[in-house]
């Protein structure tokens, strides 16, 4: 079985999830090639162990994102019978568009992959898990941080192809720059605040803690709906993002069922809430009954002490 991976880019370089895609592909065997849309990250992709070739697909159509132009440009270079992408917004669109163009079925956001092809994935944002059997050829998008990354030390050949595709989506104006901060869906540690934070300006305290430990800052739906300063991109839960970090810290979040769905699969959960009856404590590995005003300064101090050890 030959596997084609569509690489993921981040700020003009290769996103670390790409090595995880190679790791997932290696677990079921076959020759692995990596396609880099717009050529972004191709030298880095060539160094991932297990990759046999890198195709750098370049052209004007990659200047800004157009799902159809990109997928049209990439499809001719797919020779594998299994296509893997990340399950980011662009990754899902790519896997879906490529699958439809190739006549493949697609399964999104998988968290396990076995020969056969059998995959599992969470549904209802984590309230249940489904196991699906897919026939080859097919396309799959893979959730970040669920597969071990392949190591470095590879030396694959890079071939560059120039393409031209008709673009129908034109960017007219940048309205707001994306935050420089880590996305909750990708971070290994997430600290989220709820309406218990009292005021959106108090999220600055969460950012301070996040900076100590390299965490992303998230929020509950209640916080996002109540305060316009807290953007939907931070929302963890059923109408936001499903996250599975190593550590999830919930501060002033009571734990509505939609929120629990989106974070309960985190490896460890620390909940801080002044209400001892808050449902969040039901899923927490460590629960501290205390107000955020008292806890956050102490949390920052002790984390800072550990990090400087």
């Amino acid at each position: 079985m030959d596997i084609t991976i569509i690489s993921e880019a981040s700020n003009e370089s290769l996103h670390p999830v790409t090595a995880q895609l190679v790791g997932a592909a290696s677990s079921i065997g076959g020759q692995i090639s990596v396609i880099c849309p717009g050529g972004v990250g191709s030298p880095e992709a060539a160094k991932i162990s297990g990759v046999s070739k890198v195709i750098s697909v370049e052209g004007d159509c990659f200047d800004s994102y157009d799902c159809m132009a990109w997928s049209n440009a990439i499809v001719p270079f797919i020779d594998g019978d299994l296509v893997l992408t990340s399950s980011s917004a662009i990754g899902r669109e790519m896997s879906s568009a490529i699958a439809a163009k190739k006549g493949f079925p697609v399964v999104q956001d998988i968290t396990s992959l076995n020969d056969g092809i059998s995959v599992s994935r969470s549904i209802f944002s984590g309230k249940a898990i489904e196991e699906v059997e897919v026939s080859l050829p097919c396309a799959l998008s893979v959730r970040a941080n669920t597969f071990q990354p392949a190591e470095g030390g590879g030396n694959a050949e890079i071939s560059t192809v120039n393409v031209s595709e008709e673009v129908s989506v034109a960017v007219k104006e940048a309205l707001a720059k994306a935050g420089e901060r880590l996305d909750v869906a990708e971070a290994d540690i997430v600290i989220s605040g709820g309406r218990g934070m009292g005021d959106p300006s108090n999220f600055s305290h969460l950012y301070e803690v996040a900076d100590e430990i390299g965490a992303a800052v998230g929020a509950s739906r209640a916080a996002v709906d109540t305060w316009e300063e807290i953007p939907h991109s931070m929302q963890v839960g059923q109408t936001g993002k499903t996250v599975t970090p190593s550590l999830y810290i919930a501060v002033g979040i009571s734990g509505a069922i939609q929120h629990l769905a989106g974070m309960r699969s985190s490896k460890y959960i620390l909940a801080i809430n002044k209400d001892p009856e808050a449902p969040i404590f039901g899923v927490a590995d460590y629960g501290i009954v205390a107000s955020w005003e008292e806890s956050i300064p102490a949390l920052k101090e002790h984390l800072s002490a550990i990090m400087s050890d």
Partner: peptide, 19 residues
Amino acid sequence: NSGSTGPGVASLLGYSCVG
């Protein structure tokens, strides 16, 4: 929680897709 339908339908119809 998939997100396959929009881009897939656009591909089959030959429409553009904006996500």
